[in-house]
Design a protein around this nucleic acid. Structure first.
Lengths: 155, 155
DNA sequence: TCTTGAACCTCTAGTCGCTTCAGCTTGTAT
DNA sequence: ATACAAGCTGAAGCGACTAGAGGTTCAAGA
């Protein structure tokens, strides 16, 4: 009975990976950067994870999917470990991140427009079209709005 | 007269940086990865750039601002150097990139909604709010749409 | 019990597009 | 002549993994 419980709950890294959708290598990486605490090991030095690890990794995965940095997640995990701490910080992190996402969207949208404009001028015919795309890239002055560049949207 | 022309046209790296808005270190990096051809040097081994370098770097900068990868830019530069080549490839690169941008926007928008939802549930009061943000992260099942994750939007 | 082979282990290096640093040398203005 | 800004090289660091080499362990079938 308790044997079966152990069988269900103490899993090798591959099973943890499958259960959470996080790659094996990434799990080991998370352990290395101290997001995930080191699990028990078998006599042969292989990792065996319990239910708490599964939960913690699911938390991490979800937060990463939402685009939180590993550093932010470290803080969020600390907060989640100490429920007596006020959650101001968690709120601040989320709001800051939301802000960042919105800025990124805005920049990408202006990028999109610019690219649409450029791509539309040349339909890619084989003939010598004196490529409008290349001209547009060479001549910045054609650009609709060109203060500062939008490249930060990629970082 | 021709002396003055030289003074205007043959510039050190710092001036090129200023003129194009590309940092000095980045210019050297572009030379290293063979986006920008190596310029002439003074007797004391310092780089001196001409008008063609300025133009080429402006092209690169513009393309980077639009989010093209260094690799794509290499191809675009090759095309721009050989105007007799058909511009199909340039068109393909632009369209592929535009597609990528649109996907990124879509993913970020769903991220935005999710984050709004999560952040709204907790206003960050100091009192023991049993933080809804942290709960939401821990419990993936609350998530509105959770196939696949949206993290790729960050790459 | 033995053998296979998938799964695991560690460690290192590579990815992208820069940025930063250390420790020099050169150019220019006074 | 001197000071000091600007330039030089080469290597390492960033974030968040990913990939590979080269070895070990585990579990299942014969």
């Amino acid at each position: 009975m308790s044997d079966r419980k152990n069988l269900e709950r103490v899993v090798p890294i591959g099973v943890l990976a499958e259960q959470t959708g996080v790659k094996v290598e990434t799990i080991r990486y998370y352990e290395q950067v101290e997001l995930l605490p080191p699990p028990e090991r078998t006599e042969g030095n292989q990792r065996r994870y319990g239910r708490r690890h599964v939960e913690r990794l699911a938390f991490i995965k979800h937060a990463r999917d939402l685009g939180f940095s590993v550093d932010s997640i470290r803080t969020l995990l600390k907060l989640s470990d100490n429920p007596d701490l006020p959650c101001d910080q968690a709120h601040a992190i989320s709001v800051a991140h939301l802000d960042e996402v919105r800025h990124k969207i805005a920049r990408l949208r202006s990028l999109e427009k610019e690219l649409e404009r450029i791509a539309a001028t040349c339909s890619g015919g084989v003939s010598a079209c004196d490529c409008a795309i290349i001209e547009a890239l060479a001549d910045h002055s054609q650009c609709a709005h060109h203060q500062g560049g939008v490249a930060e949207a990629w970082r």
